[in-house]
Design a protein around this nucleic acid. Structure first.
Lengths: 202, 202
DNA sequence: CCGGTCGGATACAGGAACGTATTCGATACA
DNA sequence: TGTATCGAATACGTTCCTGTATCCGACCGG
């Protein structure tokens, strides 16, 4: 049964990925070594090279897996939102994309890495679009329930993502300053209202 | 004359910093080595260790120097703005902080690095505040000339920085898409109007 | 119960980068 | 011009990491 064999492979592969997440977060991707990842995962380098051909490959695999999972989480969180309470819905949607320190570090480095690797740039861009498209409809319908019409969906989507990314850094840089989070919330609200208009009753 | 001696030191120090900028941009800070920097600068490792004690130290020095210079450039650009044409002033102010590929990569990595190094976190946060404080008055006065009053300056400052950072990534990720730049501009405008109100004539 | 295959462990050699201790040349000053 | 000093070059030993080639055990099908 080939599936069982694959199952074993998949498990060590997964453990390597999980270990890498922490190593990259702690040391930075650039400063991480194959050995560190293996030590943390409880494997030898032999196992590593039997699963990946290089750290770069693992890095890509890790980023794709985690960002896809995060996208799913966001989708789930958004799906569970009560659209009859639009105010709360918006608030919940904003909270759905948490500001995670370790993950931010990894994506920041990966984005930088992608910007100097043409092939990867498109991968990142595509995932960013996917996130935008997943988030957008929730806000559009929530705003709709509030009697507001989104004027330019694409623009709103980009704006939300940009605001999320930009404010995340600020929040992380000043963990003691609770005001940063508040201003973040406010900025989201302002953008939402700036990109929508009260719908005239037909 | 001690100054002459210092002058020599300063020159090689500067050449090392310049070389490091390119190496870091090309390879990423994490993947860069002392040797690469020295090769590019035309020095040996001996010269390096006579000027810096580690790559980390150079990285910090480089970032401080360049970000301070960038801050000065922004100040200069803003100083040359004609406040009698507020619309153009705002536009010019937005353009004053250019979206530079190589520099973005370096700051992204440095920020990530700073987030895992407590001492550096404050340094980055402080510089970010300085940038905010330098930019803010220009927008406030420009809005003033347009008859608008800024409601919460701190919030506006943070929002502008966040929008700048967040949209910069998008612009860099999609260099072919001219729309990204346009939406960036629009988002700035929207934020400016969201954080200010028409001033009633007293 | 037995051979075959798959996957992780082991072992090896090579190379890359580090940091230091020392040398050598150039520059400043008397 | 001679000399002291400063700064970059050289040379060294060491550590760490890489990647591959091989081995061994476990699980599979028959």
């Amino acid at each position: 049964m080939a599936a069982t064999v694959t199952k074993r492979r998949a498990r060590t592969r997964q453990r390597l990925l999980d270990a890498a997440l922490h190593v990259f977060a702690d040391e930075g991707f650039g400063r991480s070594t194959v050995e560190q990842v293996c030590d943390r995962a409880g494997f030898t380098r032999g196992a590593f090279y039997s699963n990946f051909s290089s750290l770069d490959e693992l890095f890509l695999a890790l980023w794709e897996e985690r960002s896809a999972r995060m996208l799913d989480d966001v989708r789930d969180a958004l799906a569970g939102i009560d659209p009859d309470d639009p105010e709360a819905a918006v608030r919940a949607a904003i909270d759905a994309t948490p500001v995670d320190d370790a993950w931010y570090r990894i994506t920041a480095e990966f984005t930088a890495h992608a910007l100097r690797t043409p092939g990867l740039r498109r991968v990142v861009a595509a995932r960013e679009e996917a996130i935008r498209d997943a988030i957008l409809p929730v806000f559009v319908t929530a705003l709709g329930r509030l009697g507001r019409q989104v004027t330019d969906e694409r623009a709103l989507g980009d704006a939300l993502v940009a605001v999320h990314d930009g404010t995340a850094v600020q929040v992380l840089l000043q963990p003691e300053d609770e005001g940063a989070r508040t201003r973040r919330q406010a900025l989201f609200m302002n953008v939402l209202s700036a990109y929508s208009t009260p719908r005239e009753i037909s």
